[in-house]
Structures are given as C-alpha cells and as structure tokens.
C-alpha cells in the first residue's frame, strides 16, 4: 500500500457530493472509478473548473474534463439547451455547478469537523494556454485524482488539499 497522507475524512465528502450533486442538480447517475495520486494537480485538461479552499483545510479543487463534457454539463445546467461553444454563458453555468457542488460538500465537511470557505470558481480552457508549459496550480500539494463517469463522459476531480497546520 502506498502511504496515503490525505485524510479520507475530508476527501470523502468531495467524492460523495460530486456524485450526489450531479444526481440532484442534473438528474444524471454518476459513478466513481479508481483513485490515483499525483505530486500536484494535473493541468492538462481541455477545460478546468478551479476552486480555492481556505479554512481548516486549504488548497485547490480542480474539476478537469474534455471540452465536449464541459459543454454537456453546461447544457444540462441550462435546462438542456444545446450549446456548441464554451462562451461566457456556458462558463457561468459551469461555475454555478461547481459552487453548488462545493456548498453541499462544505456542509458535510463541517459535520466532519472542518470549517472552510471557498473562493468563487473560475473556468480555464487549455485553448487559452496552448503551447505554454503553464502551471495553473498555485499549490504543490499531493493530489488525489478521482475520476467520475456519467452518461456524458468523464470528469476528473483533482483534490489538492491539506489540513492547515495549527
């Protein structure tokens, strides 16, 4: 067994709530696939929704996905309206989804004994950073990669969080 330093206590809510929110918000069934580890968040996705977390736990949570998946999620958020490019409106829909997902997660974290706040989500596309060896992450925290799959494709949740040192 590899030494997993990340505590399940604050990681589990992220996984559970991602699946739960997709069900309640978008009416789709989602399932978690095998978890892996990376030294820091992966930054090569076509579309990334990035959330900053501060409080008893701190770091970043990044939802990474293909463009097609991002459009599908945004479309589902927007009551099913067909979308063909990731414009302001589609990005705003993705941010809203991430915000709501995190709010559910935050409630569970509080129950697990962690108080924390979120910085408003932002959406980044790799088209903006093409050709650049860009590190979108400001944190170098061992990162748990949790793939979530649903009818529209796959989302990878990068959980780069650690407990704040007292």
């Amino acid at each position: 067994m590899t030494k997993i330093l990340i505590k399940a206590r604050f990681v589990n809510p992220f996984i559970l709530c991602a699946v739960k929110t997709m069900k309640s918000l978008l009416q789709v069934d989602a399932a978690r696939a095998d978890i892996s580890m990376r030294p820091q968040p992966y930054a090569g996705y076509e579309v990334m929704i990035i959330l900053g977390v501060a409080g008893d736990i701190e770091g970043q949570v990044i939802y990474g996905m293909r463009l097609g998946v991002a459009l599908d999620l945004a479309s589902r958020m927007m009551l099913g309206v067909p979308l063909d490019n990731l414009d302001e409106m589609a990005k705003s829909a993705l941010c809203e989804m991430a915000l709501i997902t995190f709010d559910y997660t935050r409630k569970e974290l509080v129950e697990a004994g962690y108080e924390c706040q979120v910085t408003p989500p932002s959406v980044i596309t790799s088209f903006l950073t093409k050709g650049l060896e860009m590190d979108i992450s400001t944190v170098r925290i061992r990162t748990l990669i949790v793939p979530i799959s649903y009818a529209g494709g796959e989302i990878e949740i990068n959980i780069a969080l650690r407990e704040k040192k007292a």
Partner: peptide, 9 residues
C-alpha cells in the same frame, strides 16, 4: 433583473 450572459446570477 437579469444579468445578460449570466442567467444564474
């Protein structure tokens, strides 16, 4: 009121 392009806000 509606904020154009930001229908959720």
């Amino acid at each position: 009121g509606v904020n154009p392009e930001h229908p959720f806000r």
